[in-house]
């Protein structure tokens, strides 16, 4: 069953449209790479799906038991966060807060869940470390663990590799693939790094304000859009 159904979605800022007529169906367990040039509306589309921005027209329907608050979102990092005084545990636990209706304090299950996600991503030893003192790759894993505390079904990742060195990037790709393949978490990832993102993805959504392409990775490589984005350089696939 479809996890997300985007029907003719249009979004914009004040006087300009950023996303036009996007229609796509994302199924449980999909790994969708959202690619496109700077300013092509990739991040805006993610914000629409995360419920952070209203739509101008069209609709985004959640299916398969997915609720709006159960989306694990990994936003682009802000500068303020980098020196934020918070322990890793505090950050990961904050992913367990759901909506305003639920209880005000963390339960034992919440804490176990946070521990479990940290263990899975190999950051449990960093539990009591300060978030601001971690490396970029470790910070992203902490935010990924937090996102996993909020969701079982859908991760929205906005440029997760920004600022990471090649080793950390490769590791993060591995972990995202593991989450997708083993835990069947659907992944929607905005990425600049087309080659890297498409290695693990099952589907591609190429944005150019309008939706230029949506389909499987194989079809994408045989289309002319991939040449425009990668400069024809994809013989490694």
């Amino acid at each position: 069953m479809a996890l997300l159904t985007l029907n003719d979605v249009c979004m914009g800022y004040e006087h300009m449209l950023a996303v036009e007529h996007v229609t796509a169906v994302i199924d449980a367990g999909d790994y969708v790479a959202i690619v496109g040039e700077n300013g092509s509306g990739k991040s805006t589309l993610i914000k629409g799906i995360a419920g952070l921005m209203g739509l101008r027209s069209g609709s985004i329907k959640l299916g398969d038991g997915l609720k709006q608050g159960e989306i694990g979102y990994l936003p682009q990092q802000t500068r303020a966060q980098r020196d934020f005084p918070a322990s890793v545990m505090e950050v990961v636990l904050s992913g367990c807060l759901k909506g305003s209706g639920s209880s005000l304090f963390f339960s034992k299950q919440d804490k176990q869940r946070a521990q479990h996600e940290m263990q899975r991503l190999g950051i449990l030893p960093l539990k009591n470390h300060c978030y601001g003192e971690l490396s970029g790759g470790q910070q992203q894993r902490v935010l990924l663990a937090r996102a996993l505390c909020a969701t079982e079904k859908l991760l929205l990742l906005d440029e997760p590799m920004t600022g990471l060195d090649p080793a950390a990037t490769a590791e993060l790709y591995d972990q995202i693939r593991m989450l997708n393949r083993e835990r069947k978490v659907a992944v929607l990832m905005v990425s600049h790094d087309v080659g890297g993102a498409l290695r693990d993805a099952t589907k591609v959504l190429c944005m150019h304000q309008t939706m230029a392409f949506f389909g499987t990775v194989q079809d994408f490589y045989s289309s002319h859009y991939s040449d425009e984005l990668t400069g024809g350089d994809h013989h490694h696939v």
Partner: peptide, 23 residues
Amino acid sequence: VVFYHRIFAVTFDEQFAKATGTN
């Protein structure tokens, strides 16, 4: 005290808090 965890979440990352349904 009652809203301590929510205040933390909103202070640390408004975007994420909003996406998980916090007002």
